[in-house]
Design a protein around this nucleic acid. Structure first.
Lengths: 220, 220
DNA sequence: CGTTGCGTTGATCTCTATCAAAAAAGGTGG
DNA sequence: CCACCTTTTTTGATAGAGATCAACGCAACG
């Protein structure tokens, strides 16, 4: 697998010079992670950030009694743990391959060195972290201030294109992303269907009444 | 109020040259915010980040039916909205002065210009955002995977020095930080006291059994 | 002293997790 | 194409955590 050209396609790296890119590639490690493999675990020293080249990872939290909350799913082209790497410390979450995946590991020190020379890269990273921060704030808002049905409505609106939302993983997985479990989520789906707000097709959800969904999200 | 010297005391700005500092100060706006005043509101264009010079702000989310979740309290020397400013867009949360406060407003454009010239500043900001990201992940973990008592235990451990945790605001405020309301929080306090884990003094909480508290946080 | 805001306690109600079972949906191999 | 198996999803019944409502105690303060 050619690493250099692939990195070109990642928005974050698109403006780097050949030399800078190869500087990154030099210490990068490419690893295959079969489905179900642990990529890193919460509590480990956070010395790398990752680029998903193929497949998909889930980044998740685990409770003492085994419940799981999925922070986000990273697919091909997405970065993982870009945030954790800057304040030295440990990964606050774990990551596991949910498909057979290829992952590029970049070492912190190399990145930091590159950042000193390349302010544009730093700005791009700041923008990326800023985005992630927004996403987390939205999640906190969901968990603290909205019920499961409203969270589902928000998810559908957020992840739809042209009135249709493709569901990638299983509903169990979606439940873990919304901070709940399968059964309550299933009931929320039913409520939205009964109220005529959505319609379920195989492979996704059609949003019939986006205004109605938005009203739900905002609390009537 | 002399702005220059004050900024020197902020970790983020401590390594800037005089010229860079005055470049920031030039476009900065100092504003007084009496207690109870709105500093910015969720949804407004995020063109500034703030430094609290005196007093304290609460940064919070509001639900449709008026419930409030406090993301964090920013006191003198703390930055606010440093994250929101890099991905152009709107503030995801609101901020209000909870004491008579003095706040310095910095404009995004000026900061971005400075970042291009000063990679160390960018690195410091990245570290700061990284820290904030960690905090938010911890909050998500709390809300999704821990009950109120465990959240309280974590808060006490996190904010204690030498086995003692000062409570700054009211308990109503603390409840809003932990994603609950006063009554359940009060019961959680009682449980911790009954189990001999803490002891309440006026002005703060003594942690009698940190190991026991940690066990609670980790889910027994 | 009364007022006002804050905290505690008790009683109820709502939402969600859990448990259990059945129904769909997908694959596999014949 | 079908029988069979696994996985996922739906539905029902129950239980538990926490929000809400109401009443009361308590302190600060005019």
């Amino acid at each position: 697998m050619e690493l250099g050209p692939m990195l070109r396609d990642v928005a974050l790296f698109s403006q780097l010079s050949e030399r800078q890119l190869s500087g990154l590639v030099e210490t990068a490690v490419v690893r295959r992670h079969p489905r179900g493999t642990q990529v890193f675990s919460a509590g480990e020293d956070a010395d790398c950030f990752l680029l998903v080249a193929q497949g998909a990872l889930k980044v998740y939290l685990l409770s003492g009694d085994g419940r799981e909350h999925i922070l986000h799913i990273a697919e091909a082209g997405d970065l993982v743990a870009e945030g954790a790497v800057f304040a030295q410390g440990t990964y606050p979450a774990s990551a596991m391959a949910i498909e057979d995946s290829v992952v590029v590991h970049f070492y912190r020190d190399r990145l930091v060195a590159l950042l000193r020379a390349e302010p544009e890269l730093a700005l791009a990273l700041l923008a990326g972290l800023s985005q992630r921060l927004r996403q987390f704030v939205a999640t906190i808002e969901d968990l603290s201030l909205r019920d499961v049905t409203a969270r589902l409505a928000r998810y559908l609106l957020e992840n739809s294109k042209g009135g249709f939302c493709r569901l990638t993983g299983t509903k169990t997985q979606l439940a873990a992303q919304l901070g709940t479990v399968l059964e309550p989520l299933s009931r929320s789906f039913r409520r939205l269907k009964e109220d005529g707000l959505i319609c379920e097709h195989k492979g996704g959800i059609a949003l019939l009444d986006e205004k109605g969904l938005r009203a739900l999200v905002d609390g009537f």
